[in-house]
Design a protein around this nucleic acid. Structure first.
Lengths: 199, 199, 199, 199
DNA sequence: CATGAATGAGTTTTCATTCAT
DNA sequence: AATGAATGAAAACTCATTCAT
């Protein structure tokens, strides 16, 4: 049992580091944040961080990959739902707009990575792979929705990337969005896709 | 005349540095780019850079502020045009989508700045001021367009920010977009605003 | 106990750095001495110095302030002695002449500081405050000694500063003075004050 | 004639540089003063300084040597006077105390040099040679004065160095001395030598 | 002769990472 | 496992000096 306890403790501390680093990276960026600052924020020593992550970069990897997987699986769940393509798209937009606005801090890290592809090669490729996965799935749904006459016409892939750009941009610009504003943003997202609701 | 020549030469070299730095900042970011690299790229010595810019940060300022002013004035020209609000908005969207896609490297630098507001405080405030200016102008046009029945309804300010997020996101995700794709992106931008063309 | 050991070790190393820096500063001056040289002399790496002193200037501060405090307290002890003013003054002169000649290297650092007040503002103010303290105390004793008829007449404060200049100058011009010479210097110091011994 | 004019002009500019540098060196020291600052103060360009002095160090040489020679010749004049040794010594003390207090700025440069002998090897040797010359001459006079019963007894060379330390120290400590104070300082200088005036 | 521009050689300082305890 | 100490590698910035004009 002590083994279990240790593993759990280890995992907990790992998470503390990830949280601390996320918070700092998201406002100060990767280079302007020192490992010492992260350690302090996580309530441990400088050197302890390296018993959990072999390098600062590996820590960034962990931060990036985690939510990417989460979101990917959440998306898959939405995609596997029954229903009209337009309806599914609407749910996806709602879910993503909300999460992007709420998880601004995470997105800002993704953005840091994306804005410096030459430095964060590996990470930005991972993000790009995820993005492509999303856009591909959206493209397919959009095609179906257009075929079903639920959506306005327009090149489906371009539409997919347009929507993706929109959602990414939303995360970038830091609103304290209330529920009303979120609803507006969701609606505008649907419009890009060509889904005109109520009217 | 030699004075004139000197001034021109100076300006030319300044621009060389700005170009070199823009190129490097946009892929490697600010911190991962060294002044030496910039100097090398610009074909001069390390120390020469400091005769044109008193610090690395001042160089970043120059890079950021230049296009901001240009774009601001281009926008003002478009806004002062005669015509229906919908038509003006369409022109603005066209102009911005094109420029954002073409000036990807510049936008990536803006993005670097925006993604680390705690580090680039001054610069991100400048960008934000510019953004607000744009969004305010758009909001007004959108109100007018909605009143004229040219646009779909929806909170005008939210719509303005939605559009702005979209355009920013487009710049972030840097496609080598051909003319066709650009046209699609313009169309999707119009949709966000509520301007449904052709139908 | 290991804590105690560590603290002691730390203090010891700190002192090594101070010694190394004192030695170098006193012959090469502050600016012509590099931190690397100090580190080498102290038998450690370049960067290690910065774990003990946060900057080169802080190191200078430590060097200056230490002996200042020591000397100040030694002076206070002499001043609080019982006895005729002339006798006390004689003891002070003896003590200071000796220490100034012996601690030549420290005094040369003080001199460096005093000779560049615009650069070493903080430090030269500290030294000046100490000087004033001494001169004030001396002035009072001289007044008493004159009143008691032990000393030649003359403005007491001017006499105090004269003596102080003398002692400072002695430190500046660094002789390898033997005991005999020291005795002569002490006697000349007493003369300035107006204390004629043996006659 | 134009040759004469040019030479005169050259000399004038040289002096401007020397003055500017003296003023700056005396408060900021040698290393903390940049050639640019000197040039600015002297009202010329950066590079112009190097047409008058081949290096920053040569400029320091010129600053140091000039007054050294002046003072040396002034001293020689005083020494060659007719009169009792005590009387001559008194004149020398008067002259030197006055000049040291008035030429504080020059002395501070001498002091900078003396305080960093390892860096300013050549210059400090020149100063030391001059000092020795003075002290030697004083020593001889003191011997004569003692023999004549004009002075208190005491080792003449030690007395010479004592006096020299005193005068140097006076220059180091920056008094705004009025005539009265100067008179006191002169008197204290005489006392060191063993010359008790008026009584 | 004067100068603006250019640069190489440094210097302080920072920081991720390693290691002994 | 955790940490204080140590360090090598870098990086921004400075400045005396040179040189073309």
């Amino acid at each position: 049992m002590s083994r279990t306890v240790n593993v759990a403790l280890r995992e907990k501390k790992r998470q503390q580091i990830i949280d601390a680093a996320s918070s700092l990276f998201s406002t100060r960026g990767f280079f302007a944040t020192t490992v010492s600052e992260i350690a302090k924020e996580a309530g441990m020593s400088h050197a302890a961080v390296f018993t959990y992550f072999s390098s600062k970069e590996e820590l960034l990897d962990a931060i990036i990959q985690g939510p990417l997987k989460e979101e990917s699986s959440r998306l898959r769940k939405l995609l596997s739902q029954e229903g009209a393509p337009g309806r599914i798209l609407e749910l996806i937009v709602k879910e993503q707009v909300e999460s992007h606005i709420r998880k601004g801090s995470y997105l800002r890290i993704v953005q840091i990575v994306l804005s410096q592809p030459a430095v964060f090669d590996k990470q930005s490729k991972a993000v790009f792979a995820y993005s492509s996965e999303i856009v591909t799935a959206l493209t397919r749904l959009i095609e179906q929705g257009q075929a079903a006459g639920e959506l306005l016409p327009g090149d489906p892939e371009a539409t997919g990337w347009s929507y993706f750009s929109y959602v990414s941009g939303l995360g970038m610009i830091n609103h304290d969005a209330d529920d009303n504003l979120v609803r507006e943003f969701v609606d505008r997202g649907c419009r890009i896709i060509g889904l005109l609701r109520r009217g």
